[in-house]
Design a protein around this nucleic acid. Structure first.
Lengths: 130, 130
DNA sequence: TAACTGTTCTATATTATATATAACACAAAA
DNA sequence: TTTTGTGTTATATATAATATAGAACAGTTA
């Protein structure tokens, strides 16, 4: 699978953008369990970024359980059965979120407010699980 | 109105946290149109932060139209008729967002994916307006 | 006048980000 | 074995972002 990563349009650090795009790829089903990721050097060369920057992104993804890094062999997606259903989630949730954003924007509510509300419920639910 | 700002729990810069908390305050109705904000020195002293850091947050809020800065007089909330309805939005949207997060989390979908989807629709809708 | 606004300026310190180069340890293929 | 390709580690450097500090300025208000 071809990994396309756009840089520069965001004000976030490069390693974060890489990480987020790969997470999105997994969630959308473009990246599936077992798929190999490009090596840190290859991906770095492709997008014009240093190998350490890619490595930093990979470390974050490993920490969060999205990928598995095998020394000397490569890195592979670890999505379990998540990816299959995740694509459906994005498909089915698009309208929901669009409606939510429309309501918020009509009231001039900043996007960060929605981010915070989402984070709040994430923290709440993840807190119960630990 | 008493402004309570928590720092340290986030990995975001202080001036962003201040900015976001005030936006949330406006959206939730705790801060209403015309309400005076603490001076940069007062708020800085309250939360243990330099005056320039607070000033930076205020400048962002001014740029986005959330507050009005009057030289030598003070800064005041400019929420229009937004704040009234915004409180209702948060009240009514809580369950919606909670359900959305539950679905996402059950699929191990990262919160950044939701952030991105929200940003996507924000950009889409704001793009039409310009 | 005196006290309080935001503003501007200079200066410094720390951290985050990103790159550069080299070398290492290990696995797989030639 | 040799070569190539992994991730990894180490050191070094450069730049930008973040935050603080102190002083002074211009204007408003009591």
């Amino acid at each position: 699978m071809q990994l396309s990563i756009d840089l520069g349009s965001s004000d976030q650090p490069i390693y974060q953008q890489i990480r987020d795009e790969i997470v999105s790829g997994i969630a959308s089903g473009q990246l599936r369990d077992g798929d190999p990721l490009p090596s840190v050097r290859t991906l770095g060369a492709e997008i014009g970024v240093n190998l350490h920057t890619v490595n930093k992104a990979y470390k974050l993804l490993q920490r969060d359980g999205f990928i598995e890094i095998q020394r000397s062999r490569g890195t592979f997606v670890r999505a379990g059965d998540t990816a299959k259903n995740a694509a459906g989630f994005i498909e089915s949730s698009g309208r929901r979120i669009q409606a939510l954003v429309s309501d918020a924007l009509s009231l001039k509510i900043d996007r960060t407010v929605l981010h915070h509300m989402i984070d709040h419920y994430y923290d709440e639910l993840e807190g119960k699980g630990s």
